Computed example of a mutant assay.
Amino acid sequence: MDIQLAMTNSPFLETIRIDMRTKHYSIRTEKSYLYWIKKFILFNDKRHPEKMGNIEIERFLNYIATYRHVSASTQNIALCAIIYLYRHIIKVEIKDLNYKFAKQPKRLPTVLSATEIASILHHMSGKYHLITALLYGCGFRLSEALSLRIKDIDLSNHSIFVFRGKGAKDRYTLLPHSLIPALKKQIAFAQQVHDNDLHEGYGCASVPPALHKKYQNSLKSFSWQYLFPSNVRCVHPYDGYICRHHIHSSAYSKKLRPAVIASQITKRVSAHTFRHSFATQLLISGSDIRTVQELLGHTDIKTTELYTHVIGSRRAGTASPIDTINMI
Results as ranks from 00 to 15, higher is better:
83 I>K: 15
83 I>Y: 14
84 Y>M: 06
84 Y>S: 11
85 L>G: 10
86 Y>P: 05
86 Y>T: 13
87 R>L: 12
88 H>D: 12
91 K>T: 15
92 V>T: 14
92 V>P: 04
93 E>I: 12
94 I>W: 13
95 K>E: 14
95 K>A: 11
100 K>I: 11
102 A>T: 13
103 K>C: 03
105 P>K: 09
105 P>Q: 11
106 K>Q: 13
106 K>T: 09
108 L>Y: 10
113 S>E: 10
114 A>N: 04
117 I>N: 00
118 A>E: 07
119 S>A: 12
122 H>K: 10
122 H>L: 06
127 K>T: 08
127 K>I: 03
131 I>E: 03
131 I>H: 02
131 I>L: 01
131 I>Y: 03
132 T>C: 06
132 T>P: 00
133 A>W: 02
134 L>P: 08
135 L>K: 05
138 C>D: 02
139 G>A: 03
139 G>L: 08
140 F>A: 01
140 F>V: 01
141 R>T: 04
142 L>C: 02
143 S>P: 00
144 E>T: 08
147 S>Y: 05
147 S>D: 11
147 S>H: 12
147 S>P: 01
149 R>I: 04
149 R>P: 07
151 K>I: 12
154 D>Y: 10
154 D>H: 15
155 L>R: 09
156 S>D: 15
158 H>G: 00
159 S>M: 12
160 I>M: 01
160 I>E: 00
161 F>H: 10
162 V>W: 00
165 G>W: 07
165 G>P: 09
169 K>A: 03
169 K>Y: 08
171 R>N: 05
175 L>S: 07
175 L>Y: 06
176 P>K: 11
177 H>D: 08
177 H>N: 09
178 S>K: 12
178 S>V: 10
183 L>C: 03
184 K>E: 15
184 K>F: 01
185 K>W: 07
185 K>H: 14
186 Q>K: 09
187 I>W: 07
188 A>T: 10
189 F>S: 11
189 F>H: 15
190 A>Q: 12
192 Q>E: 15
192 Q>C: 02
192 Q>N: 07
195 D>Y: 06
197 D>P: 08
197 D>W: 07
199 H>Y: 11
200 E>P: 00
201 G>R: 06
203 G>M: 05
204 C>Y: 11
